[in-house]
Amino acid sequence: MSRRRPPDEGDELLARLGSLTAQARERAELQRSRVELALALQRGMLPRDLPVAPGYRLAVQYAPACSGLNVGGDWYDAFTLPDGRIGLSIGDVQGHNIEAAAFMGQVRVGLRALASVTGEPGELLARTNDLLLSLGGELFATCTFMRLDPASGVLESARAGHVPCVWATADGKSGIAQDEGGPPLGVVGGVDYPVTRYRLTQGGLFVLLTDGVVEGPRLSVDEGLDQVVRLAGIAAVAGMEAGSLAAAVLRGADRSGHEDDAAVLVVGHDGLLADVRRMRP
């Protein structure tokens, strides 16, 4: 003769299951709200407009990470400096949560504020690094800052632990920028960030990006950079618009299976003939 579970035990089990389900829904809703808040922070802290300079084109593409319920802290920025030159920055904050998104805003605002005092890339990164250390936070950020002089085409670049940029010319040459660089921002004080100078003439272009563009489960950083180098070379020869190139680079990031933020910033000089070369300090 089979034994039957008393009705009160079954009711208690169903009640417990219902309670656990309700708690799971509440946690999921809380996490979803945190993600939405972080995404809103990201959107609000990124620039809405890009500087305009005769003969030059700037374009950006950005895809926030949403792996599971996480978000990242990548950013891009472009703004006019007090002397008329253009500041370009791109970076990546450690972590994938709302704190990373908020810290991203601090770094970007800090760079902009300090750029009103000095636009020299090496000194600007050093001052931003000291500022972040003085705030006493636990996060750090990688960053590349470039200063473009539209009158001469000179690009001055300093890098703080960030993935290098890619360059290309209209005659088919392309490669990875060989900046010496320094450590990430917010790690150690008293650091010097070397400055590398390039000249961007007609038809040349630079692609600034974050590691989410060139690294993923199906792609190493080196393989990803090589992919962007090839794409940038083709784009320069074909005279592709900066916006089209930025979009194409981001599509390549999607193929890598990346789970991180992905940001692309392209600066190009209009024209048919080009030469991008490293200048001696």
Results as ranks from 00 to 15, higher is better:
175 G>F: 12
172 G>W: 11
154 V>P: 02
21 T>N: 12
217 P>V: 08
224 G>H: 10
36 E>P: 00
239 G>I: 08
229 V>E: 10
272 L>Y: 00
223 E>C: 04
139 L>M: 11
195 V>M: 08
158 A>M: 13
11 D>F: 10
240 M>Q: 14
44 G>K: 03
191 V>T: 13
261 D>V: 08
252 G>V: 05
12 E>Q: 12
118 T>Q: 05
19 S>N: 10
102 A>G: 03
220 S>I: 08
115 A>N: 09
201 T>Y: 14
109 V>M: 05
236 A>K: 08
281 P>N: 13
132 L>F: 13
221 V>K: 11
195 V>C: 12
250 L>H: 01
228 V>I: 09
107 V>T: 12
163 V>L: 02
277 R>C: 03
46 L>Q: 11
269 H>N: 06
136 G>F: 12
113 A>F: 06
105 G>E: 05
6 P>E: 12
249 V>L: 06
31 Q>C: 06
125 L>C: 09
270 D>E: 10
112 R>A: 13
160 A>K: 03
95 G>H: 05
211 D>Q: 07
190 G>A: 14
35 V>P: 01
59 A>S: 14
101 A>V: 09
31 Q>Y: 10
16 R>T: 11
177 A>R: 07
78 A>G: 04
84 G>N: 01
72 G>Y: 04
27 R>K: 06
53 A>F: 03
140 F>M: 05
179 D>Y: 03
119 G>L: 06
41 L>R: 00
29 E>R: 15
118 T>G: 04
220 S>W: 08
157 S>E: 13
117 V>H: 11
151 A>I: 08
251 R>A: 14
35 V>L: 15
177 A>P: 02
208 L>A: 14
246 A>S: 01
92 D>N: 08
201 T>I: 15
253 A>Q: 00
141 A>P: 11
133 L>K: 07
156 E>V: 04
86 I>W: 10
132 L>R: 13
280 R>Y: 05
12 E>D: 12
251 R>P: 00
217 P>A: 09
232 A>M: 01
155 L>W: 07
18 G>L: 12
186 G>E: 01
248 A>V: 01
3 R>M: 13
78 A>D: 04
47 P>G: 03
2 S>Y: 07
29 E>K: 10
17 L>Y: 15
193 Y>R: 09
50 L>W: 14
270 D>T: 02
45 M>F: 11
69 L>E: 01
262 A>H: 00
18 G>P: 08
6 P>I: 03
274 A>G: 15
169 T>Q: 06
274 A>P: 03
154 V>H: 02
59 A>N: 09
62 Y>T: 10
52 V>T: 11
97 N>Q: 09
36 E>T: 09
177 A>V: 15
168 A>Q: 12
208 L>E: 07
212 G>T: 13
79 F>V: 04
49 D>M: 02
210 T>M: 14
222 D>R: 07
119 G>C: 04
191 V>Y: 08
61 Q>N: 02
273 L>C: 07
197 R>M: 06
44 G>W: 02
214 V>I: 13
76 Y>I: 06
112 R>C: 11
231 L>M: 03
30 L>Y: 10
281 P>R: 14
188 V>E: 14
179 D>W: 05
109 V>N: 02
55 G>H: 09
97 N>P: 08
77 D>E: 11
157 S>P: 01
34 R>F: 09
95 G>M: 09
249 V>M: 07
20 L>T: 01
202 Q>W: 14
87 G>R: 03
262 A>Y: 00
69 L>P: 00
81 L>G: 00
189 G>H: 14
252 G>K: 07
67 S>Q: 07
211 D>I: 05
